[in-house]
Write a protein that binds this DNA or RNA. Sequence first.
RNA 1: AGCGGGGUGGGGUAGCCAGGUUUAACCCGCUGGGCUCAUAACCCAGAGAUCGGUAGUUCAAAUCUACUCCCCGCUACCA
Length: 661
Amino acid sequence: MVTCAWPYINYTPHLGTMIGSVLSADVVARYYRLKGDDVVFVSGSDEHGTPIEVEAVRLGISPKKLTDENHAKIVELWKRWGISFDNYTRTESPIHKEFVKSFFTRIYRRGYVFAQDVELPFCRKCDRFLPDRFVQGVCPKCGAEGARGDQCEKCDCLLEPAKLVDPVCAVCGSSPVMRKVKHWYFDLAKFSGGLCKFLEENERLSQNARKFSLNFIGGGLKPRSLTRDNKWGIPAPFPGAEDKTIYVWVEAVLGYVSATIEYFRGRGEEERWKEFWFDGDAKTLYFIGKDNIPFHTIILPALLLASGEGFNLPWSVSSTEFLQFKGESFSKSRRIGIWIDEALELFQADYWRYFLVSTRPESKDTDFSWGVFIERVNSDLNDTLGNFVHRTLTFIGRYFDGRVPDGADLGDRDREVLQSVRELVERVAKELEDCKLQEALRTVVDVSRLGNRYFHERAPWKLIKTDRDEAAKVLYVAVQLVKTLAIVLSPFMPFTAERISALLNLVEDQRRGWEEAVKLLPSNHEIGKAEPLFEKIMVDGEELQVRLEKAKSSTITFEEFLKLDLRVGEIVEAEMVPKSKSLVRLGIDVGGGVVKQAVAGIAGQYELKQLLGLKVAVLANLEPKRIFGLDSEVMILAAEDGGNISILMPDKPVKSGSKIK
RNA sequence: AGCGGGGUGGGGUAGCCAGGUUUAACCCGCUGGGCUCAUAACCCAGAGAUCGGUAGUUCAAAUCUACUCCCCGCUACCA
């Protein structure tokens, strides 16, 4: 059972999220599958909660629509990144909602939930209770403006919304009131014993996770609220809580279970999910960023314990530190960093996968820089790995007719190299199992380093002239290393591994198991024609940054799209613009009888008479432009194919002013 | 502020938990040499770090302890 943190879907994930959770989990899931273990790799979009609700309000759409769009987009991105989810679902999945409701009903019945009144800031204008950070005001300590209800960023003091001077709602700016409200709480403290035991006995928590969690418990566990007054979420199943939803954090973590249920239900194996959650020898591996630790080491285990059903607690929690971008945190609002869609505009997924794993922040925050990216791609991938594969296959193609040469009577050095490779493969496996992904990948590249050294020592280009049999042995060994790479690389760089396998003409059976990494290709096996695996990056970091900026602007956010006022308008006036060849002045009714002027270059294509009365697609809020002395206020949309221009029109009658979206 | 993590040659990292097996390892870069099968790729050698600072524990410390400086993150109603 391999899982990773559920990306919060108010926006596309960035590279930090990718390496911390999704990509790390994918590498490990792929490895265990190769090893022959029964792997289920699940995750999903976390789509409830205030930020999404607020974002949706701001965009003027429903939360569901927002998350539908983002979910669809992200699913597509996983595919392009080669993420091998068995089930990537979402918290809006009916199975998830159902599971969550029955789960919380169960722990309620078992007496771990109680209700309590609290006073919370409430915004009357937004008709919404405000999470701490959605309240802003003047810091009572340092007097800084814009301090958030949880903390003042100026003086770093911890705050509560009620302490702020002149508090305002971060969404609408009106002043909130404190309002008494009842919430339901989970009695976490009842599980501190069980949690301590779990944390101390579990060998497979990353260092940061264990220390943080034990410390967390040491400070005393407080009851954890389970409900929110949001409308967007899963209805709370507690009696009297009919107008509440379940707090996203305690709900989303249960997605690990519900996603498994959903996966097996989809396969018509209704009951099999239980093997993965109840069998003692089923192991659950979680991949998360450090911000997520308490939810996976405290809250999720406590919830699972509370159910009393005997759920397996996390076997391994691998939490990374953070990836920074040129010394700063990734920031959506400040547009600092790289998002996973933009990344693919610049380089193929495997370059990123390699880079991200090779720089995975395992013991401390690490910094992204283009310089390092270029170095890794050029040196490791291209020069060391790619070149080794290429020189080997080229040599075999040229001197051995594209067939694996005879490998009988290997010398000491030849056998020694094969032995070293076996050791390296074992090391990769060990390192992967210890979640030392960075080191594992380095060891993979070491296979090609070894290959290059061996190739050089044995100098087959000389041997081929004097002792063809000896040269054959060298290439026999070298091509075995290429095959090893095809296998051991596949968890990290599936697309490249696929290409190497194809170059080697490996059949399905020869690439399906981890043990295939050290099984030898038979002599005379025919291989394909060599072709380079990678391309060097021949530009510098500054240039890449420029390209990134372009990629950022080439994809527009949904929000930006919504700025476009696209609608249907009716052409009510049409006349030639004096002294022009192709320009037509159009009067367009954009709805409600409002007529706006457009100047369009379509005279050669349409008769003026023919235009009158047409309902056409227009962009109604384009910055006005003066053309031939006339103001063009709106733009009509048309397809252009060569010189052929075709105005876009709705295929059914609709009113002028109808929105296009 | 509290807590956690980190500070290792020019850059990027490992080692630290279980102190000696390391003359502090690896990748990049640099210098010199070699090779020419290969995508100006490959191989070898060398220079370069008193492991943030101070004090201690010990026969022995990058590794343990105390204090100190700097960076990052977290602090539970932000997901």
